[in-house]
Design a protein around this nucleic acid. Structure first.
Lengths: 128, 128
DNA sequence: CAATTAGAGACTTTACATATCTATAATAGC
DNA sequence: GCTATTATAGATATGTAAAGTCTCTAATTG
């Protein structure tokens, strides 16, 4: 079980945009070079963030990506969910018992993880 | 990101053995049937638990698996680590910065998850 | 010795992450 | 309006790890 590289790229891109603190769009070319990943692939990842309303995209010359207006509220969990999806970490496929005690433990542990990630905002990492 | 099915099988097997509360070995055949998985595959998973000293195996007729002597101390985290390995959930491949703030957040979140799973023992689920 | 059971290793299959390629759409600057 | 630049979408390819199978070996019982 691992977080995907895509999540890593998304988090670092968000942090970079937050540090920039400018409204001028940053092109995927530049973002991709910094992270040593292909622009088309990164673009596909960032499109997910656009669809979740975390960043805005601007087509055309001098286009690129900018943070959305509410960016200071965006948590690690938001970004992770946008990339990895929101489905549970643990599937108890065993006879689909709704009262499976193992599932209960696993889901409650997952909840503590999510609470932690929900409390951590990208904007906290920017303030000096 | 998901926990593997193998982890699910391992957890359910441990819980079953704990509920049995007998020293008589339980064969992989029976354990596999209950969970609707092939015996050879489950055997491969259980061997990992044997190597970590969580269960004992007995070859030969009437053989099978029994809980180890210290089974009441075995946590969810122990079992998960035995199956999934102990490597971190998050690899920050980006220029390998040892002070990457994103990595710090992710690792500290992972630690809260592990603490939770460390405090949950299989034996807690058995007591009435 | 025969039956039963776990363990080990090679192999196959499946699923998903990680890309790549190409074509399309939008926008800026001229 | 034309051209260069940039994001988006879809199809396709590649790599890797999980999931599962098959076969042979080793240990134990009776």
């Amino acid at each position: 079980m691992k977080y995907s590289k895509a999540t890593n790229y998304a988090l670092h891109t968000m942090l970079f945009l937050a540090k920039e603190a400018t409204n001028k769009p940053v092109g995927v070319q530049q973002l991709a070079e910094m992270q040593d990943v292909s622009p088309t692939y990164l673009s596909k990842i960032l499109t997910k963030l656009v669809k979740e309303g975390m960043i805005n995209s601007v087509s055309g010359a001098n286009g690129g990506y900018t943070l959305s207006r509410n960016w200071e509220d965006i948590s690690f969990l938001d970004i992770i969910h946008a990339i990895e999806g929101k489905s549970s970490l643990f599937d108890c496929c065993l006879y689909n018992d709704p009262k499976c005690v193992i599932k209960e433990v696993m889901l409650s542990a997952e909840e503590t993880l999510e609470n932690e990630l929900r409390n951590r905002k990208i904007s906290d990492l920017v303030k000096k």
